[in-house]
Design a binder for these strands. Structure first.
Length: 482
RNA sequence: GGCCCUAUGGUCAAGUGGUCAAGACAUCGCCCUUUCACGGCGGUAACGGGAGUUCGAACCUCCCUAGGGUCACCA
């Protein structure tokens, strides 16, 4: 069997959608699993949609994702060029279009826009009526000589059942009468996706085509083209859609599907890759956290799902937290730094903050919210009802007593963990309380928050002796006022 | 509307004729923790509906319903 070759063929829209990324991922995994090659081809045949710098986005995304292309515009390869506009300019598509015409698989069409519009039926659906197929060779020659604008259309045979076997969906059968004679070469001379795709896949030796389900029902058209050329068809692997919710697919329109946006939100690239790998595919042994190498070795087409899946950011957060926890402390501190700065917690030890945050951070952008009490304590408005805790049987009155006692007893000593522990034990004993009651109240007093990235001793240590005392006094004041 | 595809808990999903229908996220509870988390343990929760085939159906067939895709000089 020939070496397996897959490709990822995005159009340069300047935007790398999560769904597209997953298609690239699966194509990559499939190729690597089978010892094959993964090729990148840029499909820029639509001049109107072209976006400057879009190729950079594609390369950047693939690179940070850990997906390595074996051949492509920048890597080069035996089948260069890998950009369709460049291939067009050296006449590849025209040559093959003409060959297809000779073989009866395509024909020139000179129909005007007006005539085409007249073909629209009551449902607003327009189907071309093969009008120009009736033109004689002489008529075509004459029209061409006159310089009449033309397109080249695929000639779909009538009354043929086209059948193919998709590796995910199984046998797909479509009546050729339901297929239209689509345009292969546009009037500007550029090939359409339909045509360029087939020609390039063939020329680049692509053996397995992985693409979205939106092509499932039009694949017979591609197959008919392969047949007309006398080429062997590739194997198809169609991938189900990723949805935002039950009714809407994930899309650029909702601004919720961009890989780079997730990176900005503080997701680790591999956490995203790991998560989307699991969306629509499940490994046999049910493992969820996998390195790229493990994804490759575990990947199998049988695990691909036929039904669409809803993107669940919650689960991606969970995976991300797993990857964050296994980062070395220094690495986490470095990654967290800009988010800590954002919280305006300047003047406090960032290293200490990072240490506290490490096991409590799911995504990096949670960080400012987790530690906003450091900088915004006095502006946040102190909620004294937080002192009321059923488990610890504490309330405002008790809190006030504890805090006043804290101020009486606290020695201007070093804030060491040991020292603080001893101090709190003594404080609890003196007041006839449980240590937990004291700690709960003190922690609330210095942070104003029910949930904090650390316990009372850690918060005191972080804020320091002077600031802690100031906050305790502030809390007492608030309690007195209430 | 025509054609194509899909249907297991809130979500991702195992499952391919005999299971008390896995597992994960989320959620809830308990434990650990002197306090917040992390972590550990456990609970709640599903085969869209109806016929049929079969001794037996989440798995096979048909119909219905629901959802999605597609019908461009866009990819």
């Amino acid at each position: 069997m020939d070496k397996i070759r897959t490709r990822f063929a995005p159009s340069p829209t300047g935007f790398m959608h999560i769904g597209n990324l997953r298609t690239a991922l699966y194509s990559y995994l499939f190729a690597k699993k089978n010892g094959g090659s993964f090729i990148l081809r840029i499909e820029d045949t639509d001049k109107e949609r072209y976006v400057e710098g879009a190729e950079d986005v594609i390369y950047r995304t693939l690179k940070t994702s850990g997906i390595k292309t074996d051949e492509g515009p920048r890597e080069g390869g035996a089948f260069a060029p890998y950009v369709q506009s460049e291939r067009q300019s050296i006449g590849i598509y025209k040559k093959y279009a003409e060959e297809l015409i000779r073989r009866g698989g395509a024909y020139y069409c000179f129909c005007t826009k007006e005539r085409l519009e007249g073909l629209t039926d009551k449902n607003g659906v327009r189907t071309y009526d093969k009008h120009c197929l009736k033109l004689t060779k002489e008529e075509v020659e004459a029209n061409l000589k006159k310089g009449m604008p033309y397109v080249i259309r695929q000639n779909i045979p009538k009354d043929t059942a086209t059948v193919y076997n998709d590796l995910v969906f199984g046998e797909i059968s479509v009546d050729s009468n339901d297929l239209e004679d689509n345009i292969l070469i546009k009037s500007d001379g550029m090939p359409t996706y339909n045509f360029a795709n087939v020609v390039d896949d063939r020329l680049m030796g692509i053996t397995h085509v992985l693409r979205g389900v939106e092509y499932l029902s039009s694949t017979p058209k591609y197959n008919l083209m392969y047949d007309a050329f006398g080429w062997e068809r590739p194997t198809y692997i169609h991938l189900q859609l990723i949805m935002k919710d039950a009714a809407r697919k994930l899309s650029k329109r909702y601004g919720d599907a961009n890989f780079e946006d997730f990176i900005k939100k503080g997701y680790l690239p591999h956490a995203i890759i790991n998560y989307i790998a699991l969306l629509g595919w499940s490994p046999k042994d049910n493992v969820e956290k996998m390195t790229m190498e493990e994804l490759i070795s575990n990947f199998s087409v049988e695990g691909l799902s036929r039904s669409c899946s809803i993107f669940d950011e919650n689960k991606m957060r969970w995976l991300n937290s797993l990857y964050i926890k296994e980062m070395p402390p220094e690495e986490f501190a470095a990654a967290a730094e800009s988010f800590i700065k954002e919280s305006k917690a300047n003047g406090f030890c960032h290293k200490k903050i990072a240490k506290l945050l490490h096991t409590r951070t799911e995504i990096l952008s949670d960080i400012p919210g987790l530690i906003d009490f450091i900088a915004e304590f006095y502006d946040a408005g102190f909620d004294t009802s937080l002192f009321v805790n059923q488990k610890w049987k504490t309330d405002g009155a008790l809190a006030k007593r504890i805090l006043e006692s804290y101020l009486d007893e606290i020695a201007p000593a070093e804030f060491t963990e040991e020292g603080l522990n001893g101090f709190f034990a003594a404080l609890a004993e003196k007041n006839g309380l449980k240590k937990g009651q004291v700690l709960w109240c003190v922690r609330i007093a210095v942070t104003g928050r029910a949930a904090t990235p650390g316990g009372a001793t850690e918060m005191l240590d972080l804020l320091g002796f002077a600031e802690s005392g100031k906050r305790i006094r502030y809390a007492i004041e608030k309690l007195g006022a209430s």
